[in-house]
Write a protein that binds this DNA or RNA. Structure first.
Lengths: 142, 142
DNA sequence: TCAACAGTTTAGAATAATTATAATATATAA
DNA sequence: TTATATATTATAATTATTCTAAACTGTTGA
């Protein structure tokens, strides 16, 4: 998925026009070794730091949503006040460090398969994900 | 926890002044058999339906947060765009129906104990919760 | 190559959810 | 019952996100 390279082709393949802005954003998001967890705000900051030119906030929102809709990004809700995106789009689990408010990916094999016994009639399960909240001291654990 | 009754005493016990508004809100939230999942908006609507007098939105926010801080409510993040509260404050799991956007509680025994193998050094685990997303058809499963 | 069109970007306005403010009101302790 | 601390309220402010409409750009095909 969009790793290391030629984002122009990658974007085109999925029907997203490879505009200058989209390509730049892809470079920032996907030209890295490990998963990147970010908020729109983080991303906007990174863009203005690493790039010379500015990209409008509206475009950042649009692009992130376009990438999300094409399956290149995944949205994760932890806090009501922040929306995180994750470049790791597989079904996987997370640790959330309540001290630093950081998200940490958790490999499938680091949490034993979750056995769900309940069934909602007429519905099928789309995903089963675990959130492990950690902190160094006695925090309020909401 | 604040079930069935005398909310005046209950509130006082935890250092929350039992004002008229807080007692009313407690009655709406906790005078019920099953768990109540709601957004601030849901609650505001319910208040204006079931009560004659109005309670200001600011008060509703303040009260919900006060109740949350005292451990009477739990906040749950599913969508970035909605913040749910839950009158069931125990560590427990949820089903989320993506068709209806409804939260459904899941008893501890309906999901087998989750075995977390990973450790974050220097941190202790506060909670381990599972979110099972369900839908009737092939939905986008973000 | 280039014109035409559809899709995209942009600044700024609009909206929605939440929080802050400051005046008024209320609960509680003495 | 009075003084004081705390709560409520309407409204303003703030924040995150989405909308809008004009200007711009990528792509297609003549």
């Amino acid at each position: 998925m969009l790793k290391n390279m030629n984002f122009i082709e990658k974007l085109r393949e999925t029907g997203l026009r490879p505009t200058k802005q989209r390509v730049k954003i892809c470079e920032i998001l996907f030209n890295r070794d490990k998963t990147f967890h970010f908020t729109i705000n983080d991303l906007a900051k990174k863009i203005s730091e690493e790039l010379n030119e500015k990209i409008s906030l509206a475009t950042i929102y649009n692009t992130v949503h376009a990438l999300k809709n094409k399956g290149y990004l995944k949205e994760i809700s932890i806090n009501s006040d922040k929306s995180y995106f994750d470049t790791n789009t597989s079904v996987h689990h997370h640790f959330y460090d309540e001290d630093t408010q950081q998200l940490i990916d958790c490999d499938e094999n680091e949490i034993e398969t979750v056995n769900v016994k309940k069934n909602i009639t007429g519905k099928k399960i789309n995903s089963v994900e675990v959130l492990v909240r950690v902190a160094s001291n006695n925090h309020n654990q909401n």
